[in-house]
Amino acid sequence: MTATRQSGGIFVPVAGLAIFAIASGYLMSLIPLTLSFFALPASLASWLASTFYLGLLIGALLVEKVVARIGHRMAFVSFLLLLAVTIVMMPLVPEQLTWLIARFVAGIAVAGIFVVVESWLLIGDNKKERAKRLGLYMTALYGGGTLGQFGIGFIGVEGLLPFASILGLIALATLPALACKQSQPACEQHISLSARQIFALSKPAVLGCFVSGIVMSSVYGLLPISLQMQNLTAEQIGGLMASTVLGGMAIQPVVSALSCKMSKTLLMAAACLLGIFATGLMSLIPGYSIMVVGLALLGMSSFALYPIAISLACDELDSSVIVSATQIMLFSYSFGSVAGPLVAGTFLEQEHGLNNFFFVALASTAVYMLMVSLKQKPQIVAG
């Protein structure tokens, strides 16, 4: 397939991603909250989340060929349009099977968007530059996701207007790529990772992506409905979801800076420990204000894992295999994302159930990362 050694300008992928993230953030929280309006069972929420991430999983295996055939720019536009089709389907045919199919296809489309943008920004041989671009990518993704949460209160969760608003944002996200035809990086021969190279990828990086998928899919897929079960209003839920995603955005500059200066496995362990503290805080001390702080800290923890892990995976790789590597990392993330909502759904009926689930996932990961970091040589980089 083809890839590039130069970013070809980062405005197009970052601008398109930021607008897409606003739409996606709103949509992810909207879906579990609008089920009752369309007379669909609340139990469908976990299946919709897992089906979406199953699509993400399958899509992660297909994206590389699409980028090879039509290039980064048109692949980005194509995947956005495919996502738009699924958004049209849902309110027009409010049936369980239709929604499951729509979310599966949406997962494939979003996998394409993520791999295209990540590889576009990560291609380059300078580790420090890669870390900066990845930090910009995650900031745009989570910043847009934060803004999207406010759609719950401002636009609502009932009727056609929320879906129409999201559809408009998706259309807007295609404009930078359509308008800037020369933005696509110059192409050169690109190499897919062999099976041996795939198995040689950093194990902590693969696990970090996997656990990130478990936690983040549960945050997006089940946290809104968990908060709804606590009799919170739509505005309160929107505020709490925004706090979670804002925490994830706020930590990105810190992650970008520290990932170049210390062991990434130790950094992932620290992120997990922050999440453990957040779950304990919310379980032990009741109150809305505590939830705002706790979910912001949980967002910092869970949203930090993926960029650290993918940066670790790409550290020693040549630019020619970056697209393939990001595809493998997304596959690991997606595999965790499929399992996350299904397992987390069994915790919902318990008191502090979702918090308990996050605690178990993050605590076990922290122990593993600490064990790995203890076996490594100190990795402190000056500057």
Rank of each mutant, 00 (worst) to 15 (best):
S46P: 10
W47A: 11
W47R: 12
W47F: 14
A49P: 04
A49E: 08
A49N: 07
L54E: 06
G55L: 08
L56Q: 09
L57G: 01
L57E: 00
G59L: 01
G59P: 00
G59I: 03
G59C: 03
A60D: 08
L62N: 11
V63Q: 12
K65A: 13
V66H: 00
V67Y: 02
V67I: 15
R69G: 01
I70A: 04
I70G: 03
M74P: 02
A75F: 02
V77P: 07
V77M: 10
V77E: 10
L80M: 14
L81Q: 11
L82D: 11
L83C: 09
L83M: 15
L83A: 15
A84K: 00
V85C: 08
T86F: 02
I87W: 01
M89V: 12
M90N: 00
P91V: 08
E95S: 12
E95G: 10
Q96I: 12
Q96F: 08
Q96G: 10
T98P: 01
T98K: 05
W99S: 08
W99A: 05
L100K: 07
L100W: 06
I101Y: 01
F104S: 04
F104N: 06
V105H: 06
V105G: 02
V105Q: 01
I108W: 06
I108N: 08
I108V: 15
